[in-house]
Nucleic acid binder design. Structure first.
Lengths: 335, 335
DNA sequence: GGTCTGAACGCAAACGCTTGCGTTCGCATC
DNA sequence: GATGCGAACGCAAGCGTTTGCGTTCAGACC
């Protein structure tokens, strides 16, 4: 594999000129630049990232932290970020820190030290010492669904979204409303779930509707967890007429539980989810749609801006959510 | 951020000794090793990957190529690979090449040249020139659901899995069987889908059951595509009694279409999928389960073996599939 | 023709680590 | 006490770029 040295020799110039020519820097005549470029092409030259990184101190790599990669939501956020980073010419180093052990090891060893220009933290809420470790890296950080002083972050209005969902149920005349939340303590320690819980209580209070604690069940943000939660709710001596699931996947699980119990949706049980999962449409699930990919993409863009322009001012960008009403909450009998 | 130089000075030794001490190499007394280690700790030293990479020619990074990251299947495979790589101390550089443009750009610019020790190609079938480009990298390659001479690969028995599914339907007494396949030409150009198609025809032939071409529809491997495919099948003048979907996600879409048409599963239409998607259980979908995470993990392991032991012999590992029968194909009325 | 100027280019010192080889030194051996 | 020997360690040459600064040189100007 050719080095810059060989290219220089073949083109009859110095390595300095090759470097400048290939990186579009001034101080090289157009004739020389062309020659260097074709010679580099012929020799199939490609720069050594290690050498370049060593010389410049920049790696053109971005570390991306994500709790899981196999769940729809995280995959989408990651995909959004990846697309932006890739088209800006940055490489993406992926770190999955979902399990406790992996997470501890990551923050202890900090494998990305000195090997990334910036870090994107996707839907992961950091404990104080973890945040401190990241800060020590001395590189720009970017957040989705989390924040840190001095850095950009991207959010959705979880509280507002929750209100949309619960008010929708209330407006349909429901007063006996259950909730399937993520679970406590939340493994990911994210503020978002908490906000949605609060929204539930706030909306209920607005309408002077009491909250029945035995109708609040944890669903672990998984399909099977949602089904178990729904089953538990149905085991209560009183039965609600509607349920707010804090994620679509839990809502899917709940819908399956309802089907097993031969309860008609929405006549006997209305249900509204949260996320806008790709499957929500054909499941007829009413849901609060959030622009998942855009969240990742926007965070990546902000991060690159900070990295390249070094702008000190940081922003909290809040992206909109939208209630999409489908057959799981309307009289429409297509379910 | 401390360099090896500063650690050496602080510990009163040479940089060579620091390097050897920290990397557990021989030629350093235990006393010195300990001292170096504590000094490094105090100074919060961490090695510069760029410098180390430049000196050794190894990066401790693995490039991972994947067509999508936001779909369940790919996310799982990726997760399996990531776990293995991470615990072996390698970093993962993610390249998502699903869209045509991104794919072309990737193979044209080959951003991972000189910056990874090996490449893992996940469920992506390469055209000849793409394969050639990867070969040029001169690093070990590993494959899931694809192969290349001289490198390891991991497979499932798609043909066998397909037979399991279709024979199951046939054994239930079905003879009018439709199929929802991925579509032609397959964007990913994978052999797996083709194998499953062949298995369908083979199983039908085994039982002397004719294949009705208008019952073979493309579902694009997506939920909505599956729904559209099912709808098209139902629009035929004859109606099958069972359908084999080549992926669970398409099967989910099909089930929704059936529900919209008020057709009972499995009484009026039995359905069997392929993958073992997490949602298949609570959907009651019979399916051919493949060990998705293990496929990624196994490929990663094989790749690391080749990388570290430099073993020239390569293997094609075939992982088992298993038919899991649920209510979508049995008389069980729980749906 | 001498001077000045700026464009184009080369020199060489970093960047931080690894590693082959040479040196030192304490200790056993004769 | 001279010799040999291996363990422990240092020296310094890389690895392939980047970049500040110096040099060359063609052309403009007096």
């Amino acid at each position: 594999m050719a080095t810059i040295e060989e290219v220089a020799r073949a083109a009859g110039v110095s390595t300095a000129t090759v470097s400048r020519a290939l990186r579009q820097q001034p101080g090289v005549s157009e004739r020389t630049r062309q020659r260097v470029r074709t010679v580099a092409e012929e020799l199939n030259y490609s720069i050594s990232r290690s050498a370049s990184g060593l010389a410049t101190g920049r790696t053109r790599r971005i570390g991306v932290l994500v709790p899981y990669v196999s769940r729809w939501f995280f995959g989408q956020v990651l995909a959004g970020a990846e697309e932006v980073l890739r088209s800006a010419g940055y490489d993406l180093m992926l770190y999955v820190v979902g399990d406790q052990e992996g997470r501890e090891r990551f923050f202890r060893e900090l494998p990305l030290r000195r090997s990334v220009d910036a870090v994107l933290v996707l839907t992961l809420s950091l404990r104080a010492e973890e945040a401190g470790r990241l800060r020590e890296l001395g590189v720009p950080l970017g957040f989705v669904g989390g924040r840190m002083d001095g850095f950009n972050s991207v959010w959705i209005d979880d509280h507002g979204g929750g209100l949309l969902a619960v008010r929708h149920l209330l407006n349909q005349g429901h007063t006996d409303i259950a909730m399937i939340h993520g679970g406590t303590p939340d493994a990911l320690n994210l503020p978002a779930p908490h906000e949605r819980c609060t929204a539930f209580r706030d909306a209920m209070a607005e309408h002077d509707v009491p909250v029945r604690e035995s109708w609040l069940c944890a669903g672990d943000f998984s399909v099977s967890g949602g089904r178990r939660a729904m089953t538990r709710i149905l085991a209560d001596e009183l039965r609600p007429t509607a349920v707010f699931a804090m994620s679509d996947e839990m809502a899917f699980g709940a819908m399956h539980a309802l089907r097993n119990h031969k309860l008609h949706v929405p006549r006997e049980m209305a249900i509204v989810g949260f996320d806008g999962h790709e499957m929500s449409e054909c499941s007829g699930l009413s849901t609060v749609v959030q622009p998942v990919r855009r969240e990742g993409g926007t965070a990546a863009k902000l991060l690159l801006e900070q990295l390249e322009q070094g702008s000190a001012e940081t922003r909290d960008v809040v992206l909109p959510t939208e209630l999409v009403v489908r057959s799981s909450t309307t009289g429409d009998d297509s379910m």
